[in-house]
Amino acid sequence: MELEKYKLGGTHLKSSDFEKGKVLTTAWQPNLAYTWDNGVAIGRYLDELKNGRIIARVCHECHRIMLPPRMFCELCFRPTDEWMYVQDTGVVSTFSVARVNWDASRRGPKEPPLLPAVIEIDGATKGMGILHMLGEVDPDDIKAGMKVRAVWKKSEDRTGAITDILYFKPLRAAASKKAPARRKR
């Protein structure tokens, strides 16, 4: 058989076919609201974020200090053993300079790009990274391996959420304010 010899299905519609009502449609706005139990590990993690601290769990079998904390070790498949506070500093493992929002809409020309990164937290086992944002940094100055520190919300504004950390900023501010060069990223 050769695909070329068949009349293939799949009728392509243009956006204008919808706009001009050439094709009938029905719309649905689902109401998908959820309440997720935090569970033990993430519950404590969030409580400690409210206190301005990051807490990990330790597995005594593989000796990993794990972030985010979890009550079981997925490698050893046994309960983890103890809580341990780690630093609120870390190292950028990888990062992006995002010009789109979560729904693929574009950020406006006046909106700064979002700077998501995987940050390996000091005190946790190497390679235990978490997703968070970078801030107070020129996108062109971000480098993998860069040392960063959490910038916390004011304690009275903290609610016990991952967003109690506003972002991570470089430990040492960039030495000189460069003239705005050609945008690389």
Binding site: Y34, W36, N38, I42, Y45, L46, P68, S93, T94, F95, S96, A98, V100, N101, W102, D103, A104, L114, P116, A117, V118, I130, L131, H132, M133, A144, A161, I162, T163
Partner: peptide
């Protein structure tokens, strides 16, 4: 839902982070 979604991630982030790495 608790430790990542509040940061409003898009799937492209995760690819971008992996590609950069």
């Amino acid at each position: 839902h608790t430790t990542e979604q509040p940061l409003k991630p898009t799937l492209i982030w995760i690819f971008a982070l992996e590609m950069n790495r």
